Amino acid sequence: MHNKLVVFKNKEIRRTLHNNEWWFSVADVVEALTDSADPRQYIKKMRQRDPELESYWGTNCTPLEMVAPDGKKRATNCANTEGIFRIIQSIPSPKAEPFKRWLAKVGYERVQEIEDPELATKRTKALYRAKGYSDAWIEKRMRGIAVRAELTDEWKNRGINGEPEYAILTSEISKAAFGLTPSEYKNLKGLERENLRDHMTDLELIFSMLGEAATTEIARRQDAQGFGKNKIVARKGGRIAGEARENLEKETGGKVVTPENYLAEPESRKRLTRKKKG
Rank of each mutant, 00 (worst) to 15 (best):
N3R: 09
V6D: 15
E12A: 12
L17R: 10
L17W: 00
N20M: 11
N20F: 04
V29Q: 09
R40G: 06
Y42K: 01
I43V: 14
K44F: 01
R49N: 11
E54Y: 02
G58S: 10
R74C: 04
N77M: 09
A79S: 14
A79G: 14
N80T: 08
T81M: 14
I84A: 07
F85P: 01
I88H: 10
I88C: 10
S93G: 00
K100Y: 00
K100T: 07
K105W: 00
Q112A: 06
I114W: 08
E115G: 04
D116M: 05
T121G: 11
K122M: 10
K131Q: 09
G132P: 03
E139M: 09
G144T: 03
A146W: 00
R148H: 12
A149D: 15
E154R: 12
G159C: 08
N161V: 05
G162H: 06
I168Q: 14
L169A: 02
A176V: 02
E184N: 01
R197A: 13
R197I: 07
M200E: 15
D202P: 09
L205E: 12
I218V: 14
Q225M: 07
F227N: 03
G228D: 13
N230D: 03
R235W: 02
E243S: 08
E243Y: 03
A244Y: 00
E249L: 06
T252R: 09
G254M: 10
G254S: 12
G254R: 13
A264P: 00
R274F: 07
G278K: 15
